[in-house]
Structures are given as structure tokens and as C-alpha cells.
Design a protein around this nucleic acid. Structure first.
Length: 295
DNA sequence: ATGACATTCTTGT
DNA sequence: ACAAGAATGTCAT
């Protein structure tokens, strides 16, 4: 797959975006494995067979920030700074949402939980429409009900089957329909910051146990560019002794990215596990840093 | 730095 | 009902 035989000109936007992610993903992987050595742009470019300038351009277009800047964003130091910014943030940016049943964060999300009956039936009688869409982090599997967004998962090209199976395992009795027309608007809304507007709230449906839903609620309160330790989350929901259970609940979050599970980090600021791959967690964090400080 | 273990919730049998 | 596991945290080497 190395020869330059592909006719670049006929590739659609979507396909190039997917291919771009693959390159960027490998670069990010390299950066996060060797960030101590501060790999140079030249070395990074060589590792993916590109010229330094081409990689610089591609990476910056993707992340809104240079490989160098990304390297810094992924560093332990940076994650620690996110943590250092104290807890008060939890209630501040967020008073406005009190009027309605909903919660707000950067994406202007309103949510409702599924009724206990509906949940216990493991999705029985629920119709989930799904579709795969290209996004900045590879392929996104979007699942919606008539009440709003219910699931968001990631995969690499070729992994569609596994991703779908993973989601279907969560609600085995639900009916699944492929319906790109239904899911496309959600994909566009979620991954384009220009669409994060209060007058177009994103409706999501949280399907989980009480404990899980309370953890996901706490996650929704973390603003973009901030992070919280699992133990802080545990305190936030009033179970200071259950950081481990919180970790499990965070990992079970069916709507990744929208429910910002990537903003939960270890007590020390270390980036810990991620259901859809640690590399992707770093990619998302770096991408958010780029949205925050456009260069 | 490494490893054992404490602790809470979920899930499969 | 029970046992095992999980995207953790802490304390002892």
C-alpha cells in the first residue's frame, strides 16, 4: 500500500478524511509512545512516509494544532494542569440548565433517561436506527431512537462489524435498522463545533442503571478542556468510596464523545484506559485542545 | 517503580 | 445468590 498509484483526484472528501485519520492515528501513537524524546517533525514524517511539510499541513488541518502542539497537549504535564483547575468548575458553567430537565455542556445537550421498565427489558420494543459516518477520529457508529441520540461508538475502517456487535450486546432485544438518513444529522451536529449552539440542543437518551446514569451526568458537567479524576467523580456523585465502580461505569458509557468519558483521567493526570482505544482518547483530547486554542 | 489489596458496582451463572 | 471483573487508588516494599 505504499506505491503512489492511487488516483488522488477521485477520492471523495469522506474517504480522504478516513485515510487522514489513519495517518494521524499512527503519528499520535508514535508521539504518545515516545513523547519523552520530543520526536521531531522530521522523524514523525519519516515514520509515516511523508515529507515534513505535508505532515505538518495534514496534521494541523485535522487537529487545529501542530504536531508539536499536540505533543505538548498529550504530555502528563498538560493533563495535570487540567486537573489542577480545581472542582468549583463543576457548578459554575452550569447553573443555567436548572430550569429544564436537561443538562448543559459544550454541546448543549439535553438528556432523559429511559424508564426503568424499558431498561430492564434490555431494549425490548426499542427501535434503534444506526449508521456509520466518517468523523475526525475514524469511523463513528451513530445510533438514534425517536427520542434522541442513544449511542456513539468508534471504529477503524473494517471494524464496523465488531463495533455494531459491541453496541448490540448492550441492548440485545432491541430492533436495529440501518438508516443513514436518520443518523447523518446527528453526526454532523456532534462533530462540527460550529453546530454546538444552544438554539439547536442535542437530545440524548441515557440508557443504563441508576448508578451509571448518575456517573454520566457528572461527566456531562465537565467542560471542554477540563478533566476530572475518577475519585473526584466518585465524590461528585456522593459515593467517595467507589472510584473503581465509577471507572467501570464510565467505561460502560454508550455515547462516547458526547458524554465526555475521555475527560476522566487517573488521579495523577495519567491517561488511563479507553474502550475504543487509548490512542483515540488521546486524539480526542488533543483535538479538543485544538478547538480551544486555534492557532 | 512495582505489586498487593481494599472497595463498590455490574453482570453472567 | 454468588463470584469474577473493571477505564482506580493507596500503601508497602
Amino acid at each position: 500500500m505504499t506505491l503512489a498509484a492511487q488516483p488522488q483526484t477521485v477520492l471523495t472528501d469522506e474517504i480522504t478524511t478516513g485515510a487522514d485519520y489513519e495517518i494521524v492515528r499512527r503519528v499520535i501513537e508514535t508521539i504518545s509512545e515516545n513523547y519523552r524524546d520530543q520526536p521531531s517533525l522530521e522523524a514523525l514524517a519519516a515514520s509515516v512516509g511523508m515529507t515534513p511539510t505535508a505532515l505538518q499541513k495534514l496534521f494541523t488541518r485535522w487537529a487545529g494544532l501542530s504536531p508539536k502542539g499536540f505533543l505538548q497537549a498529550v504530555t502528563l504535564d498538560h493533563a495535570r494542569r487540567l486537573l489542577a483547575s480545581d472542582l468549583p468548575l463543576l457548578d459554575t458553567a452550569y447553573e443555567l440548565g436548572l430550569s429544564g430537565p436537561g443538562r448543559l455542556h459544550d454541546l448543549f445537550v439535553t438528556h432523559e433517561a429511559l424508564s426503568p421498565g424499558e431498561f430492564k427489558a434490555k431494549g425490548e420494543g426499542l427501535t434503534l436506527r444506526y449508521g456509520f459516518h466518517v468523523c475526525p477520529f475514524g469511523l463513528a457508529l451513530v445510533m438514534v431512537t425517536d427520542r434522541g441520540l442513544a449511542g456513539l461508538a468508534f471504529c477503524d475502517p473494517g471494524g464496523e462489524r465488531d463495533a455494531l456487535a459491541d453496541m448490540q450486546g448492550r441492548w440485545p432485544r432491541a430492533t436495529y435498522l440501518e438508516d443513514l438518513a436518520a443518523t447523518a444529522p446527528y453526526a454532523a451536529r456532534v462533530f462540527d463545533p460550529a453546530n454546538w449552539r444552544a438554539d439547536r440542543p442535542l437530545k440524548v437518551v441515557l440508557i443504563g442503571t441508576d448508578f451509571q446514569v448518575s456517573v454520566w451526568n457528572a461527566l456531562l458537567k465537565i467542560p471542554m478542556g477540563k478533566a476530572l479524576a475518577y475519585s473526584d467523580l466518585a465524590r461528585e456523585i456522593g459515593r467517595p468510596d467507589a472510584p473503581r465502580a465509577v471507572g467501570a461505569a464510565v467505561g460502560a458509557n454508550p455515547i462516547s464523545f458526547v458524554v465526555p468519558c475521555h475527560r476522566a483521567v487517573g488521579k495523577t493526570g495519567a491517561l488511563t484506559g479507553y474502550h475504543w482505544g487509548l490512542t483515540r482518547k488521546k486524539a480526542i483530547l488533543g483535538w479538543e485542545a485544538g478547538q480551544l486554542h486555534p492557532s
